[in-house]
């Protein structure tokens, strides 16, 4: 095998090892949201498949595995499919992380799926027609046509759109602090850049490092969460206090619920379902929850409080509630301090 082949083999083997290790850690990770965990595991699984295809393609190019033209095209097509699917899973992961709603994905299913279906169709049609790429059996390498750029455009579209909506969302939703765009973009872009300027397939290693860093952020987020309920804890409240002091958090009202400690875990999904966007729920005691919200009028706030209370009482959970609106001439910082003092 050539030197390039050995390096490619080592690089992709490292990517597979790292992926599998993170896969086990994520599998064992105590996460309230099973769907989010599942999508993350699919991301890792796809990178493993991608790395395996890169290794097989390296063996093919070095003549280690005997391959006819059709076999060579199938291997390359398999690799392209793995990359396409990664782009889709990434998009679905970002969407779910932001909105935590399968309904949101279902409502936009056509828009989300069409580019991928188009890419898959293009790959399949390419096998007999070779209009995207061909495999040169004499030189033992892939030759791309000018139409190949359309495939890249589709994948880039998934990434760019996901980054744009993430940037927009991060400005409003404090929870997106635990989803660093840089942690994903920097390694991915850097290693894709290397792929284009060196003979080594470094894409899977870059994506593996990016996804590993996202896992490290998941662990970070767990530090701020109450293990049993999934609500945020006092550490997160300290972080929000800093954001409020810097005028980066729009606090308009606070709701408080006294839920019996034994019912806290049961109440978690019931409360979360009732809350509007951009609310932060913090467990600040064994039986006390506070919700920092941007609702600024008494009417909607009363309705919200009643809805949550009713939802819990229907489930047989006795709950006491209260709320307070920030006064116009009051700062968010002093509003929160007063509330916590009297709570």
């Amino acid at each position: 095998m050539s030197d390039v082949g050995y390096v490619s083999l080592y690089v992709n083997t490292v990517a597979i090892m790292l992926c599998l290790g993170v896969h086990v850690l994520v599998w064992k990770f105590k996460m309230k949201d099973i769907r989010e965990k599942r999508v993350f595991l699919y991301l890792l699984g796809d990178i493993v498949v991608m790395s395996l295809f890169y290794i097989l393609c390296t063996f093919r190019d070095d003549g280690v595995i005997p391959c006819n033209k059709l076999g060579a095209m199938f291997l390359e097509t398999g690799l392209e499919m793995a990359i396409n699917i990664f782009a889709l899973i990434w998009f679905l992961y970002v969407d779910y992380r932001m909105f935590h709603s399968v309904g949101h994905i279902k409502r936009n299913a056509v828009i989300i799926m069409v580019p991928l279906l188009l890419a898959v169709l293009m790959n399949i049609i390419n096998i007999p027609t070779k209009f995207l790429f061909d495999y040169d059996m004499s030189e033992m390498h892939v030759v791309e046509t000018s139409f190949y750029v359309f495939l890249d455009v589709i994948r880039l579209a998934y990434f760019i759109v996901s980054i744009i909506i993430l940037v927009i969302r991060k400005r409003k939703d404090e929870r997106m602090k635990f989803f660093s765009i840089g942690a994903f973009i920097i390694p991915s872009v850097f290693y894709v850049f290397l792929y284009y300027f060196t003979p080594f397939p470094t894409v899977s290693l870059g994506l593996t490092i990016a996804v590993t860093l996202l896992y490290a952020e998941m662990v970070n987020e767990k530090c701020y969460q109450d293990e049993k309920t999934g609500f945020y804890n006092m550490l997160y409240l300290d972080y929000l206090k800093k954001r409020i002091a810097e005028n980066k958090y729009d606090l308009r009202s606070i709701l408080m619920f006294n839920v019996p400690e034994s019912e806290m875990e049961k109440s978690s999904p019931l409360i979360t379902k009732q809350l509007p966007e951009f609310c932060d729920t913090i467990r600040c005691g064994k039986d006390k929850l506070i919700i920092l919200s941007r609702v600024k009028d008494k009417g909607p706030l009363t309705m919200l409080s009643e809805d949550v209370k009713m939802s819990l009482e229907e489930a047989g959970i006795a709950v006491e509630s209260s709320f307070k609106l920030k006064k116009k001439n009051e700062t968010a910082e002093s509003f929160l301090e007063d509330f916590m003092r009297n709570a």
Partner: peptide, 17 residues
């Protein structure tokens, strides 16, 4: 893997501050 894997212990009592 050692360090991140063992981090699942860290939130056992953080909810109480």
């Amino acid at each position: 893997f050692t360090h991140l894997g063992s981090a699942s212990e860290i939130t056992e009592s953080v909810s109480e501050g």
